[in-house]
Design a protein around this nucleic acid. Structure first.
Lengths: 139, 139
DNA sequence: GTTGACCTTCCAGCGAATGGAACCCTTATC
DNA sequence: GATAAGGGTTCCATTCGCTGGAAGGTCAAC
């Protein structure tokens, strides 16, 4: 199979597939004309990568996961550890964003959003000495 | 003030402050010896930037916000629009992460995490035809 | 005069692709 | 046989927001 077909089947852009070959995640064969020639197993691997990336695993995680997948003697504990660490990362990210969201939506609500220049958002960012600072302290 | 003092006061690393000068967010003066010489207003601007970045605003947002802050004829609507767009970005990101989290924690829970090789996490990533796929479909 | 803590510039790298240029291969059509 | 469309190839640059490090200049204290 050529790269275009594989792109269609795996849902990954051809560019990304080439990149994945570059960094050693897949190793397609080559046809006589120099075109990459993908086996069924390559397509399967790429789809695996697509799903792992969609779950937010890093490329290095993906590399480990593929290795574990290939190793039928693996311990599921190893896989689970990678997934749990990733889950932690996600939780930390969500917590961070949720905090941002709270502060920001607070400020947005307080802003009239009209033609006048007075703006609690700017006042907060500038840490001006007014009620906005109190609002921040109250968070 | 030299960059080290400003770093301490603003909470930003010196490297970051130099970078912000590079991209035109601050324009400190220069002393005779070539050292950057920061005014009080520069420090204020940098602290503003630090807070805006902590809320997740992009550098380009920050540039706009600084411009609006400097413009006493601004309409608060302009500030609010930037903040609301950012809030949307945050909401979309949170939604994305929350979905990842749900799927992933599902899989983690289903994985024994012991010495045996059987692993629903890998099975799902590989889209193997078993109960895991059903679990995914049920999400 | 020498140490050590500052400061300077410039270049490279992170993650994970993505865009584009310049060029080759294949197939169909005129 | 020429040509055009639609594949494919490589390589280099760019994104975002810094961060690290090398190589060197400056300054105050001892």
């Amino acid at each position: 199979m050529n790269i275009g077909d594989v792109a269609d089947m795996s849902g990954l852009p051809a560019k990304t597939i080439r990149y994945y070959e570059d960094i050693g995640l897949v190793e397609p064969l080559r046809s006589a004309n120099g075109y990459r020639s993908f086996r069924q197993s390559d397509v399967h691997k790429l789809a695996f990568l697509g799903r792992a990336r969609a779950l937010g695993f890093t490329i290095e995680d993906c590399r480990s996961l593929l290795k574990l997948y290939a190793d039928t003697d693996r311990a599921s504990a190893e896989v689970k550890q990678i997934a749990e660490e990733h889950l932690d990362r996600i939780d930390r990210k969500i917590a961070e964003l949720t905090e941002m969201r709270a502060t920001l939506s607070h400020l947005v609500d307080a802003c009239a959003g009209d033609h006048r220049p007075d703006c609690p958002i700017l006042a907060d960012l500038a840490m001006e000495e007014d009620k906005t600072r109190t609002a921040r302290a109250a968070d």
